[in-house]
Write a protein that binds this DNA or RNA. Structure first.
Lengths: 217, 217
DNA sequence: GCAACGTCGTGAAATTTTCCCGGCGCTGGC
DNA sequence: GCCAGCGCCGGGAAAATTTCACGACGTTGC
């Protein structure tokens, strides 16, 4: 019996690579491809593949959100995240959203194939480099923003990264600029950073902000 | 007569994709693959391929630097940059470094093949989305940091993004912290940004800072 | 030779950041 | 019911920073 697979990646040439690697394996068959999260969700519902291989950084709704939606529709869906981000933060987000595996694109093809088999067999598959990252992040004790911040603080953090002035943020939240400034200061304190620049770097590392979130130049 | 190609990308599965697409074309043959810039340089010298297809974001020496080195060794080298960055800033950097083409990974396989043929024929190949980006960046008039800043200012900008405190930067430059603060202020003025966070965002857009530059979490 | 510019630095004003405080509402024991 | 704890909102004042105006010095180019 052969397992059916849905490939999700916004780079067509990359999908070609997955396909080439996977179809060398007996028992695997790629039945559909999607270029963004929304399309992935649609195709999952219509094609009901046994496994989804999903990239994270995509236009429109990203990979994490796509994972969430698919799992909401089918609690048993098997989704393997396959991405360039060698970053513990992304892995945590993806797994929490419901992914059953996380493999980085730097991994050799065998690792991908192995992970595909493991996830199909009901196991959780995490590539060694990410295991290592996760261990490091535990040791280094860098506070995970999503954990130490209250919901409101996290909201302010997102806005700080996305919008421009304290006043604008105060307006969208309907609070006084003073409150935003206070929270801004409190956030930096909780995350243990001294400057705004460090704050942005931390946000990048933890995947709260992505290079792709930026508007066009 | 068939053209020989060197593939450079740190993701082996992605190289598999290039290969699969390219080898469907008669007259093209992939003779070598590299996973980082240094290896690319070595292989270029030993294999002397007709064309190099190069990713930008790679560990160690990045794609732009690899392009520069290869072109330094062989002024006539034909290098096609093929990357995920849909960003005018990166394209400008790559072309200035000596690349003969710039195609984004979101492009359909035909665009890549077309660009390969064009570069082999001695033409400059730029994918339509980047053409559009370049046009926009001209129109929007966003100051390119590399252009409006003096060398010293640019140096300080890089350090601001990389290091932490004003004092540290002052020390590495052997000037007073006050000078660094003054330049910091002047830089924000010249680039037309109001806050440090905006400054980092602009740096990300223009490729002065990359998500990959960050240390591990 | 001198005007223009980049670099470095001072000092003082203006603004922001930070810290400490109180108030309000909710939740979870007891 | 009552109180402790915590998240949330903001005021006020001290502390730090950002910003601005200014001068000095060397280089470059006309």
């Amino acid at each position: 019996m052969t397992a059916t697979i849905l490939l999700v990646d916004d780079h067509s040439v990359v999908r070609e690579g997955y396909r080439s690697v996977l179809e060398k394996q007996p028992g695997l068959r790629v039945i559909a491809e999607a270029g963004d999260g929304a399309e992935a969700y649609r195709l999952f519902k219509s094609e009901t593949p046994d496994l989804v291989i999903m990239d994270l950084s995509m236009p429109g709704i990203g990979g994490v959100e796509a994972v969430r939606r698919i799992r909401q529709w089918d609690k048993a869906a098997k989704i393997l995240v396959f991405t360039m981000h060698e970053n513990a933060g992304f892995a945590v987000q993806a797994i929490r959203a419901g992914a059953r595996g996380y493999v980085t694109k730097t991994s050799p093809p065998e690792t991908l194939v192995r992970a595909v088999m493991d996830v199909l067999a009901g196991k959780i598959a995490i590539s060694p480099d990410i295991d290592h990252e996760l261990a490091l992040s535990r040791i280094s004790g860098e506070s995970s923003a999503a954990d130490v911040l209250t919901p409101r603080e996290f909201e302010v953090l997102r806005l700080l990264l996305a919008e421009n002035t304290t006043e604008e943020i105060a307006e969208t939240l309907h609070v006084s600029p003073k409150t935003v400034a206070n929270l801004h200061s409190l956030i930096k304190d909780k995350l243990g950073v001294g400057s705004d620049i460090e704050l942005v770097r931390l946000a990048l590392r933890q995947g709260i902000l992505t290079q792709l979130d930026l508007g066009e130049a």
